[in-house]
Amino acid sequence: MKLMPTCNEAVEMMSKSMDMELTTVERVGLKLHAFLCIHCKKYWDQILMVRDAVRQAVEKQESEESTCSLKPLPEQRKAELKALINNSLST
């Protein structure tokens, strides 16, 4: 069994390691590959950066600090929803 994974295998393991536990063999092989291969090292840094950026964007939207450039609920739908609510309150 070879220890050094290919680039293809290495990037699969990088993603896998973000969602579940790797085996010891996988972990060692991945570390070794990332140490020797600049492309895969860069890839790893960047997918971690993307994970972080997604979380920050979600936090920003949830804290209402910003609208995250998303459009508001269309006025027409708002009017429909209000009518719907008033209707069921009066019955």
Binding site: V58, Q61, E62, E64, T67, C68, L70, K71, P72, L73, K78, L81, K82, I85, N86, L89
Partner: peptide, 23 residues
């Protein structure tokens, strides 16, 4: 409930939009 749409409508909509993307 009469105030829900005005107070929370945009927030809920953006929350959903971010996750399902289809308006």
């Amino acid at each position: 409930p009469e105030t829900w749409v005005d107070e929370y409508g945009d927030y809920l909509y953006r929350y959903a939009l971010m996750r399902v993307r289809d308006p």
